[in-house]
């Protein structure tokens, strides 16, 4: 018999207007949900279905009648009769500026879709002057709060800095970080609960960091790779992808993605194997899979190499004796 499974109470539907079109969504939905239902495209960067919305990137802002300021569509819940505009002058201006602010301070070269948005909104990141020279390795990690580091007048401050390479599984390219908080959330309360990552510092000096900016191998990191899984800009990247990109052999158009189940423990996590030239080049998990919600552990994310290694098996091969 199938019985006694609590059924979620039926949610009332709420009618709102988006760009003068009536849209009906279940109570508790966000404006973004409503826009998606109405096929209205809203750009997002810091939003992810599986994470608590932090609404910090502000690229998804919309105008809500009666609201003094624009509101983030990713987190604002719909209310009956709400009148939303997603394409007004105010909205377009703020989105353009947000994109300009990001593009003028962060390397967005591996952020999907953003080039189109920059063009759509006529953003011009170059009008803030030439970029200041990149920071030295570790320099930004030491910036204390409340005392900014002004660059020479005429130049624009950026977060450019060398890539952090401290382990064989993934790299950190903070010059590509838009501070969307996703990695911190995925490492923390929203998924892994390891809390190896934090936002440290304040203002423009705020950055993703471990405690005292120690290297990942000295930190609490357990290499679940969920930071990579959530990162929208490639600031966190598989070493395999990083190396292939450096070698010019990364080709997403030649990759096939196959969903299967992890070969390790009995939890049954779905893996998406990204395969190029009959080699796994990275592993993700579907966000909508109810077991993983897109999250994996070190074995599922990185433990697949054994199917590609040719030659005798030695368990000690992987021992890091450092």
């Amino acid at each position: 018999m199938t019985a006694l499974i609590p059924i979620e109470p039926l949610r009332k539907s709420v009618e709102i207007s988006v760009d003068s079109r009536p849209v009906s969504v279940p109570e508790g939905s966000t404006i973004l949900d409503a826009c998606r239902r109405a096929d209205i495209e809203v750009p997002t960067l810091c939003y992810l279905d599986t994470l608590h919305p932090v609404n910090v990137c502000r690229v998804c802002v919309v105008e809500v009648e009666g609201s003094r300021v624009l509101v983030p569509s990713c987190s604002r819940k719909v209310e009956p009769g709400m009148v939303v505009k997603t394409d007004s002058e105010r909205v377009r201006h703020s989105r353009k500026m947000v994109l300009e602010f990001l593009a003028s301070s962060v390397d967005l070269s591996t952020t999907p879709e953003v080039a189109e948005w920059l063009a759509d909104y006529a953003a011009d990141p170059e009008r803030y002057g030439p970029p200041a020279p990149p920071s030295a390795a570790g320099e930004r990690d030491s910036h204390g709060p409340g005392h900014h580091h002004a660059v020479e007048p005429g130049f624009r401050a950026t977060v450019a800095q060398p890539v952090k390479l401290d382990n064989d599984l993934y790299i950190r390219d903070y010059g590509k970080c838009i501070l969307c908080y996703k990695c911190v959330e995925a490492c923390g309360k929203d998924a892994q609960n390891t809390f190896a990552l934090t936002v440290a510092g304040r203002g423009f000096d705020a950055r993703i960091s471990t405690e005292f900016a120690v290297l990942l191998p000295d930190s609490a990191c357990v290499y679940c790779g969920n930071c990579i899984g959530e990162c929208p800009t490639g600031a966190w990247m598989f070493k395999t992808e990083f190396d292939r990109r450096a070698a010019g052999t990364w080709d997403e158009s030649a990759q096939e993605v196959t969903t299967t189940i992890c070969p390790y423990c009995g939890v049954g996590c779905s893996l998406e194997l990204h395969v190029q030239d009959n080699e796994i080049v990275k592993v993700t998990s579907p966000l909508d899979h109810s077991i993983t919600s897109g999250h994996l552990c070190i074995k599922g994310r990185f433990g697949w190499k054994f199917v590609q290694n040719r030659g005798p098996v030695r368990q000690s091969e992987g021992v890091d004796r450092g």
Binding site: V59, H147, A150, I178
Partner: peptide
């Protein structure tokens, strides 16, 4: 404002920098 911005949202985190830079340029 640049120093006291918490850094959370892009308009404030980068906007306060760009505002200060522009004034600095004018001043210089």
């Amino acid at each position: 404002f640049r120093d006291e911005s918490c850094g959370q949202c892009v308009p404030c985190r980068v906007g306060t920098v760009r505002q200060e830079e522009a004034l600095h340029r004018i001043l210089a």
